[in-house]
Amino acid sequence: MADKFAIITGASTGIGFELATLAAKNGYDILVVADEPLIDAAAADFKQFGTQVSSVMADLSTIQGVDQLLDAANGRRVDLLCANAGHGLGHAFLDQPVKDWRHVVDTNIVGTAYLLQRVLKDMVARDDGKVLVTGSIAGYIPGAFQAVYNGTKAFVDSFVAAIQNEIKESKGVTITNLMPGPVETEFFARGDMLDTSVGANPNKSDPADVAKDGWDALMAGKASIVSGWKNKIQAATANVTPNAVLAEQHRKMAEPGSAD
C-alpha cells in the first residue's frame, strides 16, 4: 500500500483516464469512478504501474452516488481528489428533455459541489490535501446550443475561486481549476454534438496534454490553468467581449448542422 491515496472521477476515458494514469505513475493508490462499466477495464490498465487500484461504478449526479464513491474509500485519507466527472449536452435548450439537462446540472454542479464539500472538510481539518477540479473556458462564454453545459461550467469556475478564498488560511490545502477548451474525448458523441463545427473539428486538444497541464499546475499549487495557448487567448478575450457577440460566436461552433 502506498502512503498516498487519490480519487479520480470520470476516469473511464478522456481527461479522467489520463489523470488516473498520472496519479498511479506518481505512486498514488487510486480509486477511480465513472457511471459506466468501462471503468473496470480502465482500472485494470492502471494496475500496470504497481499501486493499488480499485474502481466503482456510480452515478455522481446523485448524492447517493457520491456517498457510494466515498464509502468505497473505506475510510482511507484522501490526499488527492481529481473532480473530473462531467456531462455535456448539445442542441437548443427548448428542444432538450428536462431529464437530460437536469442530469447535466446535477452531475456538473450538485455532484461536484457535494463531493468537494465532503472531501475538503477532512483536508482542511488536517491542513493537508490537493484538489483538481475540471472546469472549462466554456464557463466564460454564453453557450448558444450548449447553454446548460456552459452555464454549469460558469458555476464551477466561479465556485472554485470562491472556495479557494474561503479556505485560504489552510496553507496545506490547494484547489486547482483546470480549464480546457474542446478536447478529443467522447464528450461530443455523448452530448450528441458530432454534427457541429466544434464536434467535427479534428484539431481538438489531446486529453493527455490537458491532463498533464492540470497535473503540473496541481503539483505546483496553482489556483488555475487554462490548457492550450489558443484557449488562453480565447479566455482572455472573453473578458472584454460583449456576451451577445460571444453567444453568436458559440452558435457558429455548436449549432446542429454547422459541421457541414
Results as ranks from 00 to 15, higher is better:
132 L>W: 01
155 F>I: 11
80 L>A: 11
48 Q>H: 01
172 G>C: 05
159 F>I: 11
148 V>Q: 03
189 A>N: 09
14 G>D: 04
186 E>P: 02
43 A>M: 06
257 G>Y: 14
71 D>M: 13
32 V>I: 14
226 V>E: 02
104 V>Q: 03
178 L>E: 04
188 F>T: 00
238 A>G: 10
33 V>S: 15
164 Q>S: 04
185 T>L: 05
55 S>P: 12
124 V>S: 12
172 G>F: 09
27 G>T: 01
132 L>V: 11
121 K>R: 15
179 M>D: 03
219 M>Q: 15
99 K>A: 14
119 V>G: 12
188 F>Q: 00
202 P>A: 07
69 L>C: 02
130 K>L: 12
37 P>F: 11
211 A>M: 04
193 M>A: 03
27 G>I: 01
46 F>D: 00
207 P>W: 07
245 V>T: 15
104 V>K: 01
10 G>N: 08
33 V>Y: 09
98 V>G: 11
175 I>G: 05
176 T>V: 04
13 T>M: 08
209 D>G: 00
148 V>F: 07
61 S>R: 05
140 Y>I: 09
25 K>V: 08
55 S>I: 05
107 T>Q: 02
220 A>L: 02
22 L>N: 07
114 Y>D: 06
84 N>I: 08
185 T>A: 08
241 T>D: 13
113 A>Y: 10
65 G>P: 06
61 S>I: 00
36 E>D: 03
28 Y>K: 03
220 A>D: 09
1 M>F: 04
46 F>G: 05
15 I>F: 08
72 A>T: 10
204 K>S: 00
189 A>M: 05
227 S>V: 02
203 N>W: 04
100 D>K: 12
242 P>Y: 12
111 G>V: 04
56 V>E: 06
56 V>T: 12
100 D>F: 08
240 V>H: 12
119 V>T: 14
142 P>F: 05
178 L>F: 00
59 D>G: 08
159 F>S: 08
112 T>I: 05
136 S>H: 01
53 V>P: 01
80 L>Q: 07
211 A>L: 06
13 T>S: 13
183 V>I: 03
39 I>H: 11
121 K>F: 13
85 A>N: 08
238 A>Y: 03
134 T>H: 07
19 L>T: 04
19 L>C: 00
27 G>V: 09
85 A>L: 01
88 G>S: 02
143 G>N: 13
252 K>P: 10
160 V>Y: 07
160 V>L: 02
66 V>F: 10
147 A>F: 11
163 I>G: 04
75 G>T: 06
89 L>F: 07
57 M>N: 13
